[in-house]
């Protein structure tokens, strides 16, 4: 299966090796960075949503009660 690369085998294999290594590193770093950012954003959005819901819960009863009180 492996082609006969003759006297230039080292050059050809090292060129392909360097290329695959660099591409693999770039892909892995890209995916890791993407996953980290997505996770962090999800956490902050959840906290933000919870805070917003808490505020709504606090303000809603007062709004409902106001007409009755009046």
């Amino acid at each position: 299966m492996m082609p006969d690369l003759g006297k230039y085998a080292t050059e050809v294999l090292s060129a392909y090796g360097v290329t695959l290594l660099l591409i693999l590193a770039l892909v892995l770093l890209t995916l890791r960075q993407s996953a980290r950012t997505r996770r962090a954003l999800r956490q902050v959005e959840a906290a933000h949503q919870a805070k917003a819901n808490g505020l709504t819960a606090k303000t809603k009863p007062r709004n409902k009660e106001t007409p009755q009180d009046g």
Binding site: P3, D4, L5, G6, K7, Y8, A9, E11, V12, A15, Y16, T19
Partner: peptide, 13 residues
């Protein structure tokens, strides 16, 4: 010789 095979990574990159 076989170094021509480097063309498939060198030129696209």
């Amino acid at each position: 010789g076989s170094t021509v095979k480097i063309i498939y990574i060198h030129v696209p990159s």
